[in-house]
Design a protein around this nucleic acid. Structure first.
Length: 442
RNA sequence: GGUCCCAUCGUCUAAUGGUUAGACAUCACCCUUUCACGGUGGUAAUAUGGGUUCGAGUCCCGUUGGGAUCACCA
């Protein structure tokens, strides 16, 4: 499939670090673009100037680069204010945007009053009924207006790629505030203007945006833009069931630091909550080809960090040598020898160091290990060497099983567990092995 | 409270109205003279009450539970 006109966007607001929820949205967009042969753009939604920070923006880029979710185009909302104002002027002239003079406190009070009466806290549109004289009176009092988008009567319907047909009545929606008292724009309208201007064809985002979608569809229509396709992903929940705060703070940066592979995060997130098995994918391309919105369930999957870590280990065990080679200087032999016994890719360094660098051995049973040193055969060594040697040591010492193996492993590697000793021994070599068995640094 | 969405093993899901299936985790066994890796097998679920039907996980209504939204956040 290929369609040059397909374009999706990832539109994070730089008000926090890249976390698992964010990443999932970015990933699904990227995957969709890849699968359809379209483009993926990055849009920095920094309309909330108070909370937006350069630091967060940098972190988002860093995470995207690490995940290999590359983008071909970029935009920044704070740089497009003139365009938003131009569109807002037109909508005002058409009566789709109207001024309101309530203070945030008054609105809050009204919401509480409605809620207490068991009514939905929907704005009563009193701004719409204001006369010119009343507005002037407010201005004299020093009040500045904020602006709302007027929703038209009727049902708003769209066919969601994940949720199927969605219907919302405007009666259950508040006219969204789109321009603040200080003249700055809120998210809703700029997002729609950008989607139209940049030719966005598909919007993939979290389920928390479904009611926004209803209002935004009217905005698309009001400015004469083509309404894109929507896909609303069920929100991830935490282990405890609630959308935990931990999830928000579970950063990509932290996961990376803990040794979680980018492809583990991507594979896991792409398949969690779908009818497909969560399996390691080793390329985003392959993952993209497997994308199928119809396989996404509608209930909220639980995200468990421990499961991700476990999955990561499974993925690491089968990392292709080419991938490993590009990151660590090791031979294919070495990789084959240790791959089944590492938890994270960085453990490669540990085992490489154990085999090649100097190490202070831990001696548990000096009588045994000293004898082992004496019995060590001459090189060349291969995978058979260990078998003959340990057999000789067993006979000489009378030790067996764990009593035999554990002290040997500890002396040779300084570790309680690890790859099979028969593959490790030739890698360590006679020189080091003999010294270590004797308790000497080597 | 209004609106919308959801409910099957511990977890993620499957099942034209017709024997509840698979994957991950877990457990056991096998392989390893060790820890692991790997292989084989087992345990384990339709939230609840009605209705429709010869027959309901599936359709309808109620209950309970969970989530989203109703911001001068995005």
């Amino acid at each position: 499939m290929s369609n040059g006109n397909i374009k999706v966007r990832f539109a994070p607001s730089p008000t926090g670090f890249m976390h698992i929820g964010n990443t999932r949205t970015a990933l699904f967009n990227w995957l969709l673009a890849k699968k359809l042969g379209g483009k993926f753009m990055l849009r920095i939604d920094d309309t909330d100037t108070l909370r937006s920070k350069k630091e967060y923006e940098d972190a988002i880029r860093e995470a995207l680069v690490w995940l290999k979710l590359d983008w071909s185009e970029e935009a920044r909302q704070s740089a497009r204010k003139e365009r938003y104002e131009e569109v807002a002027q037109k909508l005002m002239a058409k009566g789709r945007i109207y001024a309101c003079y309530e203070t945030p406190e008054e609105l809050e009070f009204m919401r509480k009053r409605l809620l207490n009466k068991g009514l939905p806290p929907i704005y009563d549109r009193s701004g719409l009924k204001l006369t010119q004289a009343q507005k002037e009176e407010y201005e004299r009092q020093g009040r500045r207006p904020h602006y709302r988008f007027k929703l038209e009567d009727g049902e708003i319907v769209w066919n969601d790629l994940v949720r199927g047909e969605c219907r919302y009545s405007e009666k259950n929606l508040s006219d969204p505030v789109i321009i603040r008292e200080d003249g700055s724009f809120l998210y809703h309208l700029p997002s729609v203007i950008d989607d139209v201007d940049f030719g966005i064809t598909h919007i993939v985002r979290g389920e928390d945006h479904v009611t926004n979608t209803a209002a935004q569809i009217q905005m698309f229509e009001a400015i004469g833009g083509k309404v894109p396709s929507f896909a609303h992903l069920p929100l991830l929940t935490g282990k405890e069931g609630k959308l935990s705060k931990r999830l928000g703070s579970l950063g990509v940066r932290e996961l990376r630091a803990e040794g979680v592979e980018a492809m583990a995060i991507c594979s896991f997130l792409a398949k969690l909550g779908t009818s497909e098995a969560i399996e390691p994918y080793y390329s985003l391309e392959e993952l993209a080809q497997s994308l199928d919105f119809s396989k996404i369930g509608r209930s909220q999957p639980k995200f468990d960090e421990a499961e991700l870590k476990h999955f990561n280990t499974r993925l690491v065990h089968n990392l292709p040598y080419a991938e490993v080679k590009s990151r660590y200087e090791i031979s294919e032999n070495f990789w084959q020898a240790i791959k089944g016994n590492i938890k994270i890719a960085d453990d490669i360094k540990l085992w490489k160091s154990i085999c090649q660098d100097e190490l202070s051995p831990k001696i548990e049973d000096s009588e045994l290990t000293n004898k082992g040193a004496e019995l060590l055969p001459q090189e060349p060594w291969n995978e058979e060497t260990f078998g003959t040697w340990i057999k000789a040591l067993k006979e000489a010492s009378g030790k067996n099983g764990k009593e035999l193996y554990h002290p040997v492993r500890l002396a040779l590697t300084g570790m309680n567990d690890g790859p099979e000793l028969k593959v490790l021994l030739p890698l360590i070599g006679r020189l080091k092995a003999e010294k270590r068995l004797k308790g000497q640094k080597a």
